[in-house]
Design a binder for these strands. Structure first.
Length: 710
DNA sequence: AGTCTCACG
DNA sequence: ACGTACGTGAGACTC
């Protein structure tokens, strides 16, 4: 296997595969114990994180026939465990002793810990900071764990010493941050030392902001996500409870809560050590426990190709951030506010009284109480529902107040969530907006974006698109948007193996028009827009696990009519019904479904006796392989794009991911070359693991703002 | 803290 | 008879 360095990688001086000792044919339980025994404590446990092609790693997904295709390298041969000690469950669950943790306050002791990590070839790492935002956080200290129960905390930014203050100077006994960073950098970048962390992306950014690119690494949160996604959350406290039957010290316990809450730099060193070292200790134990399970449960490829390499890719994206134009947003907000004010006067006039339009309760009371308008529906808590669907109906019946409330609401949404909120996210140091991607929060393998959410920036209305225009490129550069065309329907055609759909995509036909033509018997040429619209809704519905109720609701037609459409669809494409039935059965049997790449999505309520819950679970089971495979494919593209750009000496940077779209920033002179490189990587992203029977098509465009580029 | 509504794919 | 289109996150209001 050839190991190469990527853009931000350090040279691999001793490429040892920590999995190399795994016995390929070991039965799951035996394999688990063996792997635990041999893998966990081998010296020099470097992992090949810097591989050029994520598919060039040993096969472990034989259970997933499709995913096994592309695994080129043979399974590694067994080799002796070497210095590996036996790591048994007793050691991993040995009681936590907070007093056994060391507070490291000077370089000689820190050097000892670093040497110990080097000897073992691995170390668990955790950072304590002053903020959940890693782009603004101050560093309070770093904790390390080398063996279960053997952990330390290295404070370097505390303001409260507690007992650990120097009596002569009343200063806190701690190393300077610069000295800690300088001492840790060689360790954290040492290719021969595996760094284990919980939600590493956070710590990666803390270190990246201080000039360190951590590598190689493992992430316990992501191991858990791959093994047990959909079954439970993947936070450290939950994992500790679940796997170690240990409840870590709650953060509130050391930092307080409510008005007494302080930042971690104000926590006294002794308590800080208890808390921080415990986190590293627990993380190490979780890593030693979960890592062997990845191989034993044939999920190693998913972890190593779709999760682990994405950590640094996402961290670099978040680090880069994106420029927004606050002046444009302010002008928009003012425009919207003026229009809203006029609407408000009108609405109150029609209502015959002033009330808070933003209060669903008050609005419901006016519409359905005071005026007794028809079409009232109650929410599950018994209040009048006033959502857009209800108001649309009222507006269609000629109730102008409903239309006005709808328009008012749209502007309120745009102001509250976007024009007024986004400027507050501009980082004062970088002048840019740095979202955070949650890697383990969805059941399907999608990412989620928070603080702010940049995956739901408006696009569907003209007013909304004006907000998108505020996402801009810096002078001399362009934004490049690249998005997969119809990726989920293409994957449906492949996965359910529907000849007509595959042919339509091969010929790049209008898929919704073709569907309409097939089920309604209307020629594509001269097709009324309404017919195509209905077919489009059906196509979406299929991907969502269609129901007559849902389709009827979406199209505003009778359930019987919707049922007829579905019946027609299934008789025209019987493979779709087969896929749905087989997928439901698979989920019932196994409790999970899988993507083409072997990502497992557990479906918790698939055997529920509650028909409503079970129905929901069945639709989720139908949708997950499609949505999840699309998520896997764009993850693969994201892992490869930075290397592909660097290989052409391009400085273009990936900034955002919006499920089927990637947004880049590139110097003007680079845009054409970058566009074609990006398109090429994205369209080939399923290869070589999966040879899809439909083409993947990516549309790319460059402009000075996101709206124009999309 | 829970509910409702609505922004996105 | 039942209640659902799949997956998210944020802001305002309410209690």
């Amino acid at each position: 296997m050839r190991l190469v360095t990527l853009d931000h990688a350090v040279p691999v001086k001793e490429p040892i595969d920590e999995f190399a000792v795994r016995e390929p044919q070991a039965a799951p339980l035996i394999g688990f114990l063996r792997a635990m025994e041999f893998n966990s404590l081998t010296r020099r446990a470097a992992s090949h994180f810097n591989i050029e092609d994520p598919d060039l790693i040993p096969s472990d997904t034989a259970a997933s026939p499709a995913a096994a295709q592309g695994t080129a390298a043979p399974a590694p041969s067994a080799k002796p465990g070497g210095a590996g000690a036996v790591m048994d469950r007793a050691l991993l669950t040995k009681p936590i002793d907070h007093d056994a943790y060391e507070t490291v306050t000077a370089l000689p002791r820190l050097s000892e810990w670093i040497a110990r990590a080097r000897e073992l070839g691995r170390v668990a790492v955790d950072t304590e900071t002053t903020s959940l935002d890693p782009m603004q956080a101050g560093l309070c200290g770093v904790s390390l764990a080398v063996m279960p129960g053997e952990a330390c905390y290295i404070p370097c930014g505390h303001r409260a010493g507690g007992d650990l203050v120097s009596s002569s100077r009343d200063a806190i006994v701690q190393m300077a941050e610069a000295d800690v960073i300088a001492a840790l950098k060689p360790l954290l970048e040492d290719p021969g030392v595996l760094k284990i962390a919980q939600n590493l992306k956070y710590d990666y950014l803390i270190f990246l902001n201080r000039g360190i690119r951590v590598a190689p690494f493992d992430d316990t949160m992501l191991m858990s996500y791959v093994l047990e996604g959909g079954l439970h959350g993947h936070g450290m406290d939950e994992l500790s409870q679940l796997h170690l039957t240990h409840t870590p010290i709650p953060f509130d316990k050391v930092a307080g809560k409510g008005k007494d809450k302080v930042t971690f730099d104000n926590v006294a060193l002794k308590e800080a050590t208890h808390y921080a070292a415990e986190d590293a200790d627990v993380t190490l134990r979780l890593g030693l426990l979960l890592k062997p399970r990845l191989a034993a449960e044939a999920k190693r490829t998913v972890y190593e190709t779709l999760e682990r390499p994405l950590i640094s890719v996402l961290a670099e994206m978040e680090y880069a951030g994106i420029t927004i134009d606050p002046d444009l947003l302010r002008r928009l907000s003012n425009d919207f506010a003026q229009i809203q004010a006029r609407m408000e006067t009108q609405i109150h006039k029609l209502a015959g009284e002033t009330f808070n339009i933003g209060s669903p309760k008050q609005l419901g009371d006016i519409l359905f109480g005071k005026f007794s308008l028809p079409g009232g529906r109650k929410t599950k808590t018994g209040a009048w529902s006033t959502d857009a669907e209800i108001l649309d109906d009222l507006a269609a019946q000629g109730h102008d107040i409903a239309k006005m409330v709808l328009d008012w609401r749209q502007l309120a949404k745009l102001r509250g969530t976007y024009t007024d909120a986004l400027p507050n996210y501009i980082n004062p140091r970088t002048g840019r907006v740095h979202t955070s991607y949650a890697m383990a929060s969805t059941s399907t393998g999608r990412l989620a974006s928070t603080d702010p959410n940049l995956q739901n920036i408006p696009i569907r209305t003209e007013e909304g698109r004006r907000i998108r225009q505020a996402f801009v490129s810096p002078p001399g550069a362009k934004l490049i948007s690249a998005d997969y065309s119809q990726i989920e329907l293409r994957l449906l055609a492949h996965i359910a193996d529907i000849p007509e759909l595959k042919k339509a995509f091969a010929e790049e036909l209008d898929i919704h028009a073709m569907t309409a033509s097939e089920i309604f018997g209307v020629p594509v040429k001269g097709m009324p827009a309404e017919v195509r619209r209905r077919a489009k809704a059906i196509n979406f519905g299929i991907v969502y696990g269609i129901s007559a109720f849902g389709l009827a609701n979406q199209l505003g037609i009778a359930r019987e009519e919707a049922g007829d459409y579905i019946k027609k669809y299934f008789s025209r494409f019987p493979g779709i019904r087969d896929y749905m039935e087989e997928t439901k059965q698979f989920a019932r049997d196994k409790g999970y479904v899988e993507t083409l790449f072997g990502r497992r999505v557990h479906i918790r309520e698939i055997r529920s006796t509650n028909p409503s819950f079970r129905g929901g679970a069945e639709r989720a089971a139908i949708n997950a392989p499609i949505q999840g495979t699309a998520a896997d494919i764009i993850r693969r593209a994201m892992v490869r794009v930075p290397g592909a750009l660097a290989a052409q000496k391009l400085t273009a940077r990936m900034l955002l991911q919006v499920h089927d779209e990637l947004v880049f920033e590139a110097p003007d002179a680079e845009t054409a070359v970058a566009e074609s490189a990006i398109k090429s990587v994205m369209e080939k992203a399923a290869l070589p693991a999966i040879q899809l029977s439909v083409p993947l098509t990516v549309e790319v465009r460059a402009a000075t703002n996101w709206d124009a580029a999309h």
